[in-house]
Every structure is written in C-alpha cells, then in structure tokens.
Design a protein around this nucleic acid. Structure first.
Lengths: 177, 177
DNA sequence: AAATCATATGCAAAAAGTTGCATATAAAAA
DNA sequence: TTTTTATATGCAACTTTTTGCATATGATTT
C-alpha cells in the first residue's frame, strides 16, 4: 500500500505528531495521493504496531502529551524496499466521464453546469500549483536542490490540470453547438 | 457508486450477459473506470437483487443457460437520477509520484527504468486511443452522431495521456542531467 | 487422448477507503 | 459569557476494491 510508504517518506525527512504529519501530507503529497485524516491516523497506528515507526511522548504544559512519531531502521528499510520495487500504473476512476458517456439521457444544460463546476475546481488546483511553482522558481538555485524531485511531482499536477482544462474547453464547445 | 451506474449505462443501450457486459465495459468505459470482472459480476448480482435490472434465461444447446440482463424501469429511473446529481471530482492516487517524491533514497537508474516502463504503458494507451479516434473520424458524419459523447470521453484519454508523456519527458531530462 | 488455453462464470477473505460520529482544548467572536 | 471555530485526535461501521481461488465448457495443441 502506498499510503504507508507515503507517510514513511514524510517521516524520513522529519519527525512529527499525527497532526503535523497530516498537514504535511496534505500540503506535499495530497495533490497526488488522496487520504483522509482517519486513514492517516490509523496507518500511523499500524505502522507503529509493525515497528516501522516509533513514538515518543513529549509532555506539554496543560495539554495532553504530544505523541511524536519517528522512523525506525525497519521503517527506513521497508521504505527503500518499496521504492525499489515497481508500482502499478495509476488506475483511473472518473465518474464525470461515466456521466458524460451516458449524458444523452439528461439535459445538456445539466452537463454544462456540472462541467463548469468541475472546471472551477480544476482551475483552482492549477492556480495553487502555479503559485507553488513560482515559489520554487524564485528560490536561489542552491535552495532549489532539495526540492527538485517534489518539483517534478508538482509539474505533473500542472501539466495534468492544464490538460484537463483544455479538454473541458473541447467539451464546452461541443455542448454549446 | 459509479460502477453500478456505469453498468446501467451500458444496459441502457443494449442488453447482454455478464460476459458481454464485461467486454463492453472494458472496451468502452474501461479507459476511465477501472473494474475487475469479479466486481462487475457481483454488481450485476446486486443490481438484480435491487430490481434495477432483470434477467432472462436463454436456453442454449449443450451449454448452460445464458443469463441475459436488461434494464428495468426502476433501473432507468435510478440511472437518470444519478446522472442528474453531481459527482465528485476524480481522486488522484498515483503511486509513481509518491515514489518520485521520495526518489532521492534510491538509485536514479531505478527511477529512470521504472519511468520508462510506465512511459511504454502510457504510450500504448495513447496509441489505442488514437486508433479509436481515427475509427470515429473516418465515420460519415451521420454515423458519428451516436458516438459524439463517447468520443469526448476518448478525447479526455488522449489529452490526458499526451500530458502524461510530456511530463515524463521533463522527468527524463532531469534524470539524465 | 491428454494437456493446455481462451471463454465464461462466480465466491470469499482481506485490504483499503469512506462516512459518520465522538472527544477535548484553546482561541475568538457574538 | 456562551457559542462558535480551529486545532488535534481517533473509533467503528460500512462500502468498495483487490486478491486469490474455483469451476466448467469448448477449442486447440501436442
């Protein structure tokens, strides 16, 4: 399962509490790996049970103890092993396309409307990605180094969203005519 | 669930046995909705139990009876209702990007290799899509009509795969340097 | 004639993901 | 000061998907 290894990847760089990891996950991997907070907490639990991460309690004044997770050697090994084995090509399950395929059964305006809602979402994602890209590009070359690979994942998001929006244009012009 | 409705969409056009539907599913919807044969058979079963499709037995000489599924009014209504309600934006879960994100932990050549395997798969998909597109474009305009919406779903595949391959070029040139 | 392969079905267990709650603190707003 | 909102956690039930069998027929090889 990739979620486990995605979390391990985060911990490889820096330890953190469940919530820390959740936020880092959403901010850095969330664009290409969808996961709910429940999933992340429960995976942290099983990763811990399996000895791939461990966890220290940091006392806090007033608040309950902060559980800080970090990588173990076993976790590191498991991550590297996973990285070295092939992964499957991403499976597509796109309900909007199912709907478009059967779209003759409903009013074109319904389709148009829904398409434009999806377009707005994809446009927002693209904007987010382009902003992140600018942040990266504005860094001095030396500071870019550690982010080169994450930047490539961002490029995937950018090219993917642009392609989606180009397609939406085609569909819109069909629905207009 | 979209799988149910994808199957209903197929049955809306034409009845068929489980295997017929399986093949049509793979050929027509499989590019944007992934489903195993087990899933399709079991969904047919629940659709039947729920009265959204019914099933007649056609005797065959020698062979066991052929179970032919077709749409019921309830099924049609359920499909239209589903089509009229918004669907969620496709969730991305792309393990290759997780791997690329953590790629500094392994040999660049491993990444290169895996990327090129994925590239080959995506290239094959693009080729398939382009062939289908040609078939469609070679039809006389009148024959194209019933396939206009499916054609748009095909365009999504084409634009999507092209964008993937463009991205792969970027990654390759990074991994080379 | 025996072995193997493509067709045509399906069950059942396990894994992964979704949905709906539930809790508790701290800060901010009404 | 009570209510709301953001932070910070997590369980449990359910749905969906994946994986691994299992079966039976007809066609094709060996």
């Amino acid at each position: 399962m990739s979620l486990k290894h995605a979390i391990l990847t985060l911990l490889e760089t820096e330890e953190g509490s469940g919530y820390d990891l959740l936020k880092r996950f959403k901010a850095r991997l969330g664009f290409f790996w969808n996961a709910s907070h429940q999933q992340i907490y429960s995976q942290l639990k099983t990763l811990h049970q399996d000895g791939l991460i461990d966890c220290t309690l940091e006392a806090q004044q007033g608040k309950p103890d902060r559980k800080v997770y970090h990588m173990t050697q076993a976790g590191h090994d498991a991550l590297v092993k996973w990285l070295e084995n092939p992964v499957k090509v991403d499976k597509v399950n796109d309900a909007l396309l199912v709907k478009l395929y059967g779209g003759h059964l409903i009013d074109k305006n319904k389709l148009k409307q829904e398409l434009s809602e999806h377009k707005a979402i994809h446009q927002r994602m693209l904007d987010t990605f382009l902003n992140l890209e600018q942040e990266y590009l504005n860094l001095p070359k030396t500071k870019q180094k550690p982010f080169e690979l994450p930047y490539l994942t961002l490029r995937r998001g950018i090219l993917g969203e642009k392609a989606w929006l180009d397609w939406a244009e085609e569909v819109e012009s069909y629905l207009k005519g």
